[in-house]
Design a protein around this nucleic acid. Structure first.
Lengths: 64, 64
DNA sequence: TAAAAATGTAAATAAAACTTGACATTTTAA
DNA sequence: TTAAAATGTCAAGTTTTATTTACATTTTTA
């Protein structure tokens, strides 16, 4: 699963730590998701999408 | 997390077992998700959305 | 209305998400 | 140009979700 979180953060000038705080997970979780280490849970994906005012599909791309 | 899977299945006349087969999980997993016992993984949410040709947000509704 | 199909449920286990803490490397800014 | 901030990573542990097995109940259909 790829995602555009890094770019979206850059656009809004938000650090991994800031994003983590705002969606209530650890900084390492954001880093791991951003680097593709694992996928967020569905509720977390919703939170992230809401934060950026985007659809989940506009942030995360399933690669199949 | 609520979802409209049951209605979508009804519209397409698909059983829980059929849906389970098509997204490659057990029938009980579909049943549990449908009943709100737990949320699907993000990849599974993508598979389900793709199957119904809908956005994830059109099937699953985060309740916050 | 009896058989078959579909759905509901529960317990046990496996797998994945997430946390915490720690430290190394890279980038930014004073 | 060096201190601070940000990012990357790793290991160990917790929590949550997925899977399996098994059986019970409800709905459909022959």
């Amino acid at each position: 699963m790829k995602n555009r979180i890094k770019v979206l953060r850059a656009e809004q000038n938000i650090t991994q730590a800031e994003l983590a705080n705002r969606v209530e997970v650890s900084r390492q979780t954001i880093n791991a998701i951003e680097k593709g280490k694992f996928d967020p849970s569905l509720p977390l994906a919703f939170k992230i999408a809401r934060l950026f005012n985007l659809k989940i599909e506009d942030i995360f791309q399933d690669e199949e």
